[in-house]
Amino acid sequence: MIQQAEMVFMTQTERETVELGRKLGEVCVPGLVLALAGNLGAGKTRLTQGLAAGLGIDGDEVTSPTFGLVHEYSGRLMVYHFDTYRLPNDQSFLDLGAEEMFAAGGVCVIEWASKVAACLPANRIEIEIEAAGETTRRISLRAFGHREVEVLRAAYPGQPEVE
């Protein structure tokens, strides 16, 4: 069975959400796939800005890829930032070159990932953001795969795991 681990955080401010992303970015390894879920306004792009900052990319460079569909940023590792909001089906996601980017040795971040769940590698970190208050967010991170679990534990040492 594939190794798994889950952690849940409550962030009270946007800054804390960004910080959570930054910690993960600092320990990202080549080939990691991060699948983001959450409604409009939940903070998917904000969290990605933090993640990019942790990889040495200026957070202001990271903008919503809703129209551009995929943005690329160059940091300690390349970041491929996808947004499936405008995509109707799996094929259109694959047509963007998603599988090539999964294998390109960078970090892939996919906003609205549940729309293309069937296209994602089994080894990934799923990040689900739920609005629990005006700026309060419940953020759950589920790592699937040995390396992904290690990354999660390295990012948040001491954070209890959900049984």
Partner: peptide, 9 residues
């Protein structure tokens, strides 16, 4: 509002 066939094809 979605793009049915966005890709290079």
């Amino acid at each position: 509002g979605v793009v049915p066939e966005i890709a290079s094809r």
